[in-house]
């Protein structure tokens, strides 16, 4: 099911004017920031289809900036987020693209920060709900509505069993999981959505597993301060 619960229909609480082009864009920006692990210094944001056509009027640009600042969808500062981003030392550029991608509201964020580069592609599927569909060259699919682990690791036998063993030892149920890899025995990326919050030491133990090169925790269910 694309929409999981009643609050994906009634909600989110948000600053207008568009749930898909404003609130959804805030969430895409926030997930992107959490995937990078820090505030990016420079972001080139490519916008596709309806995002490309109407981003200015819907405040998609301010919304993505707000998300990259780590803000929530109902933050009062959203209308001024581009200024706030500049003050925070983020350089953003928006590039509407004519390409025909599968989903009408798609943004691809090429982030640079802390000596790293990361490409995150997200789509806004309506009512403020999103799907992250790409991380660098990997295909993924997750909503950010659940506590989520994103692991980069070697494609080795037994690695996922090690991860799931640690999760079950922590009494955490997996709601959804997807795995993609560049090639057989190449680099792999796994996304795990869990039903409960992810404790810090669990994340640390997973990071210490042989073959795991990076772990990121994403949890948009955690509220941030409004202003």
């Amino acid at each position: 099911m694309r929409f999981k619960d009643v609050f994906s229909i009634i909600g989110p609480g948000m600053i207008g004017p568009s749930s898909s082009h404003t609130a959804g864009a805030v969430r895409i920006g926030r997930v992107a920031r959490e995937l990078l692990g820090s505030q990016p210094e420079r972001v080139v944001i490519r916008l596709y289809r309806s995002f490309a056509d109407t981003y200015r009027g819907h405040g998609t640009d301010v919304a993505l900036a707000a998300g990259l600042l780590g803000w929530d969808t109902d933050h009062d500062g959203i209308p001024q987020a581009l200024v706030a981003a500049e003050q925070a030392g983020m350089e953003l550029s928006f590039v509407p693209k004519p390409d025909n991608v599968p989903h009408p509201n798609t943004a691809a964020l090429q982030m640079h920060g802390g000596g790293r580069e990361l490409l995150v592609t997200g789509t806004s599927i309506g009512g403020g709900n999103i799907a992250i569909v790409g991380i660098d060259e990997f295909d993924v699919r997750f909503s950010g509505s659940f506590p989520t682990l994103v692991l980069r690791h070697a494609d080795r036998i037994g690695l996922l069993a090690d991860v799931t063993r640690l999760l079950s030892a922590a009494r955490l149920n997996i709601g959804q999981m997807n795995v993609d890899r560049t090639s057989r025995s190449g680099a792999a990326l796994t996304v795990v959505e869990t039903d409960g919050p992810l404790p810090r030491d669990l994340v640390r133990s997973i990071a210490r597993l042989e073959g795991v090169s990076e772990v990121r925790k994403i949890d948009l269910t955690k509220r941030r301060r409004r202003t």
Partner: peptide
């Protein structure tokens, strides 16, 4: 109108139809 002026609303189910 509050939505269009970037005020706080609840998406029901979307902001355009709030």
């Amino acid at each position: 109108e509050v939505n269009a002026s970037m005020g706080r609303i609840i998406a029901t189910p979307t902001a355009g139809s709030c």
